[in-house]
Simulated assay, not measured.
Amino acid sequence: MPSVLHSVSPLQGANDTGRFSSQEWLGLGGFYLLFATLYAGAIAYSVQEVQPGAFPDYLRRTLLYDYTLKALWTVPVWWLLFRTPLDAAGWARKLSAHLLLAPLWVAAWFSSYYGLLQLLGATGMRGPGRVWDVYIPLLFYGVQFGLFHTVRFTQQLRQQHRLAEQLRFRAHQSKLAALKAQINPHFLFNTLNTLSASVPPEQEPTRALIAQLAHTFRFALEATRHELLPLREEIQFLEAYLALEQARFGSRLRVDLLIEPELLSWLVPPMLLQPLVENAVKHGISPCIAGGAVRVRLYAAGARCLGAEVTDTGVGWPQGQPPDLATSPGLGLGNTHARLLALGSAGLELLPHAPTGACVRFSFSTDISPSSCSASAL
C-alpha cells in the first residue's frame, strides 16, 4: 500500500543517536592507542635498569593482548548500557550499574589476560605489583565509559536540536496550509448551508452528506487553532469523514471503530488519526475491486498513554515492504510520524496485516512524557 509521502524534509537523521561516526571511531582508536602507549611506557620506564630498551616489546604485548582484551570485554558492557532500557535510565541507575559492572569487567579482563600470558609462556606482574593490573584497568574503565557517556549526551543534544528544528519546519508548513485553507471560510460554510437548504426533503441522504462535509471542513479549520482537543471530538471528525467515504464506496468499504469509552475525555493533538485512515482507504481499499475493511482501535497502553492501531484488508504495502519513514518523511504518514516524534513518541510503526492489507500503529503519552508509554503494550 503506497504511503502518502511526496516531499522530503531537509531535516533528517534524527534517529541516529547511539551510532558512532567515523570521526568518533577514529577518536576511540586514538584513545586506546594513547592509553596503551602511556601504560607500556610507564612499565618500560620502571624496569629500564634491568631491561633497557624494553619499550617496543611492552608496547607490542600491550596492544596485541592487553588492550585487545579490554576492547573485547568492553563490547558487552557497552551494549548493556547503550542498547537496552538502561540507555534511557537516570544517572543514579546508570551509576549503580557501573559500580556493579566495573569490578566484573576488571575481573574478566584480569583472568583472561593472565590466562593468555600463561598460554603463551609469558609473564605479567607478580606479587604486590599486580595491584597495578587492578588499579589501571579500573581507571581505564572509568575514563573510557566517561567518554562514551559524553558522546552519547552530545548525540542526544544533537537529536533534540534536530527534532526541535523539524517541529518548527512542520509548524511552518502547517501554518501555510492553514492560511491557504482559511481563505474566506465563512463563504465556504455559508455556501454549504445554502446547498443543504436547497436540497428537497426526499433527498435527505444528500442533505446529510453536505452537513457532514461542512462538519469536516469546520473541524479541520478549528483544529489549526488548538494544540490539544478531547479525543471525543477527534472521533466525531473521523466518523464524519468515514461517512463521506462510505457514501462514495458503498458496500465496498466496511468500518470498525473499537474505542475504550474512558479514553474519550483524554486530550490529544488533533488530526492524528484521519491521515492514517485516509491512507488506508485511498491506497489500500480503493484499488481493490471487492473493497475491504478498515479497523481503528484505540486503547490505554499505559498510564495516560494512548495506543492506536489502524489496519485495513486492502492491497498492502508495495512488494510487501512498508516504506522507511526515517528517510522519507513527507505528507500523510510522514507528517504524522514527525508529529509523534516531536511529542516524544517512537513514531509510527508500519507492519503488514495478515492475510492481506497493512497496519499502522503508534503510542504516545497524553502527559507528553515518553516514559509513561510502554511500547510492549502495542
Rank of each mutant, 00 (worst) to 15 (best):
V315M: 09
D312P: 09
A303Y: 04
G320K: 13
A300R: 15
A290Q: 15
G302Q: 04
G307E: 03
Q321M: 13
L298A: 04
R304P: 01
L306F: 04
C305F: 05
R304G: 05
T311W: 04
G314Q: 10
E309Y: 00
V310D: 01
G307V: 08
R295Q: 12
V294C: 06
R297M: 01
V296W: 09
G320S: 05
L325H: 07
G314N: 09
R295K: 14
T327D: 00
P322Q: 12
V315R: 14
A301P: 01
L298T: 11
R295S: 12
V296N: 00
V296F: 02
Q319L: 11
V310C: 05
V294N: 08
A290C: 13
E309G: 06
G314F: 10
L298E: 04
P318T: 08
P323L: 02
T313L: 12
C305L: 06
A300E: 14
P318F: 04
P323D: 03
T311P: 00
A301K: 05
Q319E: 10
L306Q: 02
D324P: 13
A326Y: 11
V294D: 00
R304L: 02
A293Y: 00
L298Y: 04
Y299R: 14
G292K: 12
P322G: 12
L306N: 02
A293W: 07
V315N: 03
R295C: 07
G320R: 10
T313F: 06
D312L: 08
A290S: 15
Q321S: 13
G307Y: 07
V296D: 07
A303L: 10
T327M: 07
L306M: 04
T311F: 09
L298C: 11
P318R: 06
R297A: 09
R297Q: 10
T313P: 08
A293M: 14
A293S: 15
D312I: 07
L298Q: 04
V296C: 02
A303T: 14
A290E: 15
Y299P: 01
A300F: 02
L306T: 06
T313C: 08
L325C: 00
A308I: 13
D324M: 13
Q319G: 09
G320V: 06
L306W: 11
L298G: 09
V294R: 12
A301F: 03
L298F: 02
A290I: 06
G314T: 12
V310P: 02
P318N: 05
V310N: 00
A290N: 14
G320H: 11
D324F: 07
G307W: 00
Y299N: 02
V310K: 00
Y299C: 11
R304V: 10
Y299W: 14
L298P: 05
L298D: 03
G292Q: 08
A326G: 05
P318I: 02
L325M: 06
P318Y: 08
